[in-house]
Design a protein around this nucleic acid. Sequence first.
DNA 1: CAGTATCCAGACCGATACTG
DNA 2: CAGTATCGGTCTGGATACTG
Lengths: 102, 102
Amino acid sequence: MSNSSQDVDVATILQNVLGCKWTLHILAQIRQNVNRPGELVRSADGLTTKVLNERLTKLIRFGILQKTSYPEVPPRVEYELTEFGKRFSNLLDEVDRLQNEL
Amino acid sequence: MSNSSQDVDVATILQNVLGCKWTLHILAQIRQNVNRPGELVRSADGLTTKVLNERLTKLIRFGILQKTSYPEVPPRVEYELTEFGKRFSNLLDEVDRLQNEL
DNA sequence: CAGTATCCAGACCGATACTG
DNA sequence: CAGTATCGGTCTGGATACTG
C-alpha cells in the first residue's frame, strides 16, 4: 500500500505535526467538520491566517489533507482528511485513549 | 488512574516531548534496551550529547523515563521506561502499524 | 563515560498590512 | 472570504570545548 503523494515516514510526519503549534488543534477541528478557513481561525484564539495556511499547506504536502475550492462569490474553500489522513489521525484517537487512562 | 509525577495533558506531552527532534528516535531505542547514553548518541547520526541530555531530562520530567546511576568507574547510567512511559509509548506501536500499512 | 557551557545560524510564529 | 508578504522577537538545535 502506498501514500497518495510519496513514500513517507510516519514518525517524521508525527514529529512535524506535533512539533508545530496549532496543527494538532487544526486536525482535531477538521475531524469534526470544522473545515473552512474562516471557521478554523475563529476556532482558536491567537491563530492567524498566515499560520493557519502554513499548517494547511504542510498537511496537504504530507498527504493528510485535501483542499477543495468552490468557484463562488464569495469564495468557499474546504479542507478534508484524505484516506491516509484518516488513518494517520487514528493516532490522535490513541492519544485520547491514553488521556482517559490518566 | 494517575500519573506518577503530576496530572498531565497527554496532548501537551506529545507536543512538548514528541514535537522535539530526536525524541521519538530516543524512545524507540530505549524500548529496545539501547538505554545507555553512549549507545544512544551513537545510534543516531547528528545527535549530540547536549541535545540527548535535553531530551532525556524532558522525558524524566514528564514521568516517562527513570534514570539509574551505577557508582562505578567508569560511570554507568541507564535510562528505562516508567510504567506510565510504557503505556505512553504504545503510541509508537500505533506509528509502526501505520507505517507498515503504507 | 556521562554531562554541562557557550556560541550562533536558522526556524518558528505573532502582528500587521495587503491582494484576489 | 481566502490567501500572501514582511518584520522582528524568541526558541531550537548543531558545533565545539570543557568538567567530573
